[in-house]
């Protein structure tokens, strides 16, 4: 049994791109409006999870494989730390907002907050990739019948 019914598949085909786009919007405008890296990352992950539930695991894994998700998880965490360390080089302290200090942009614009948008992007990548990966692993576990489990215990 691969995926759900035809209605679910058609609606998913239309809507998945919009969900992904909305996640990117939430991540990018986290410093201007409600949202941010965490909420946006979870929305990005849920677009892939919708794909997994509607079409089956293979389709979702062909878009974003398990190794790729694991790498993106690490890349997000490393990017967060690298930007924080760059603050040490350029601004003199860990986590200093050096971009906003040197180039204070016009307020209420996309590029107004300096480092904060970069942090949001890093966290969004990290949260989205790690949650998608853990969902794929949880959903990959097959059902073990009760008798089989008992047999396994007795053999040991």
């Amino acid at each position: 049994m691969k995926g759900m019914s035809l209605i679910v598949k058609t609606v998913t085909r239309w809507i998945k791109g919009f969900i992904f786009l909305f996640g990117i919007y939430i991540v990018l405008t986290g410093h201007l409006s409600p949202g941010g890296g965490f909420a946006g990352g979870v929305i990005l992950a849920s677009s892939f999870i919708l794909l997994t539930l509607a079409f089956g695991k293979e389709v979702a894994l062909s878009k974003l494989s398990k190794n790729m998700a694991s790498e993106l998880d690490s890349i997000g965490a490393l990017m967060f730390l690298t930007i924080a360390l760059l603050g040490m080089c350029c601004g003199g302290a860990f986590f200093v907002n050096f971009l906003h200090r040197s180039h204070p942009g016009e307020a209420f614009r996309l590029l107004s907050a300096g480092n904060i948008m970069l942090y949001n992007i890093a966290i969004g990548i990290k949260v989205g990739a790690s949650l998608f990966m853990v969902f794929v692993i949880i959903s990959a576990i097959k059902v073990v019948l009760k008798d089989d489990a008992m047999k396994m215990i007795r053999h040991k």
Binding site: L131, I138, I141, V144, L145, K146, D148, A149, I153
Partner: peptide, 24 residues
Amino acid sequence: IVIGLGVLTLMVALCIRLYERYGT
């Protein structure tokens, strides 16, 4: 809230493993 999601995932993973080992 986000830490709660991570911890819940960890607990669900433990539940699945316990169910497979003991069948209940």
